[in-house]
């Protein structure tokens, strides 16, 4: 009884809207005034003929791989070091977690300056830093690089989220009972083997949660990218393309199609996780 209002609200505002979006995506309402008649999956297949769409999908994949991989690796490493009992752990933990408190927009504005693409005399930001410390060869175009620009775009995201991943992993590490490690050590495991065969398998649920949280943030990425580079093709991703389709091209059906693809991409991450956790709950 108590939860029924929220169930109704979610049914209307989440699933109802989702359904409405999918229905819009299957019409030919390509401007704001026309009625739009049903055209089936035409928009969904037609969009793959557009060069910009494949480009933005590629960008999203590069961004996701670098961001999720980078944040997991860095977060794990930080948690590992913390767990080894660094001095001043509390302070360091707070420092690494702080970026989480900042919005992606603020992060983006700062990193836009840090990742300025000026080289040589015109270098500012990180390129300037490289010059000062004598590493001119590391200067590059950052997010304006045609092939790896999106990897540069993932750097601020990694910076922002790796502290959070660290916190997740640290909780995971702490959740591994000491007697299990002791038992492994008594059985003649080296420290590395303890981690490899005892701790890591027990961290699997944590890794999976982190993967899903980061994965869905990454596929929906919009604010960070707009704050760093605006609505430029060189850093186009589906969410930005959707915004342009709706508000600049005034093409609701196209925007809805892109939105539908984003939902589908996110659900590829989320649904297996839900199934898995439901099964686990049932088992216990």
């Amino acid at each position: 009884m108590l939860v029924s209002p929220s169930i109704v609200a979610i049914a209307v505002f989440v699933y109802g809207m989702l359904g409405w979006n999918f229905r819009l995506a299957m019409t030919d309402k390509h401007d704001e005034v026309s009625e739009g008649s049903f055209v089936g999956l035409e928009n969904f297949t037609g969009i793959w003929d557009q060069q910009r769409w494949s480009l933005s999908v590629n960008h999203a994949i590069v961004f996701t791989v670098v961001f999720v991989g980078g944040a997991l690796a860095l977060g794990w490493l930080l948690a590992f070091l913390m767990e080894k009992g660094l001095r001043g752990e509390g302070t360091l933990r707070a420092i690494y977690l702080f970026p989480m408190a900042i919005s992606f927009v603020a992060t983006g504005v700062v990193w836009r300056w840090l990742m300025n693409s000026g080289i040589g005399e015109r270098a500012v930001g990180l390129n300037r830093l490289f010059e000062v410390v004598g590493l001119e060869s590391l200067q590059w175009q950052w997010f304006r690089d045609q092939d790896w620009g999106m990897a540069a775009m993932a750097i601020p995201a990694i910076w922002q989220m790796s502290g959070y991943v660290m916190a997740l992993f640290l909780a995971g590490f702490r959740g591994v009972p000491d007697d299990l490690r002791e038992a492994a050590r008594v059985d003649g495991c080296t420290e590395w083997q303890v981690y490899r065969h005892v701790v890591l398998p027990l961290l699997r649920p944590v890794t999976l949660s982190a993967l899903i949280i980061l994965g869905h943030i990454s596929l929906k990425a919009f604010d960070l990218i707009v704050a760093v580079s605006g609505k430029q093709i060189i850093t186009d991703v589906p969410a930005v393309f959707m915004w342009v389709a709706v508000f600049d091209s005034h093409d609701p059906a196209k925007g809805a199609t892109i939105a539908a693809y984003i939902v589908i991409a996110v659900s590829i991450f989320v649904i297996p996780y839900l199934v898995w956790s439901l099964r686990k709950e049932r088992r216990s």
Binding site: D31, Q146, I233, I234, D236, V244, S249, D251
Partner: peptide, 23 residues
């Protein structure tokens, strides 16, 4: 109009990467 302008912007943005005049 807006739709046309957006399409031109898209074409020029893609051109800046491909440098392909025919496209």
């Amino acid at each position: 109009n807006d739709a046309w302008r957006t399409a031109i912007n898209e074409a020029v943005g893609l051109f800046q990467q491909s440098k392909d005049v025919a496209a």
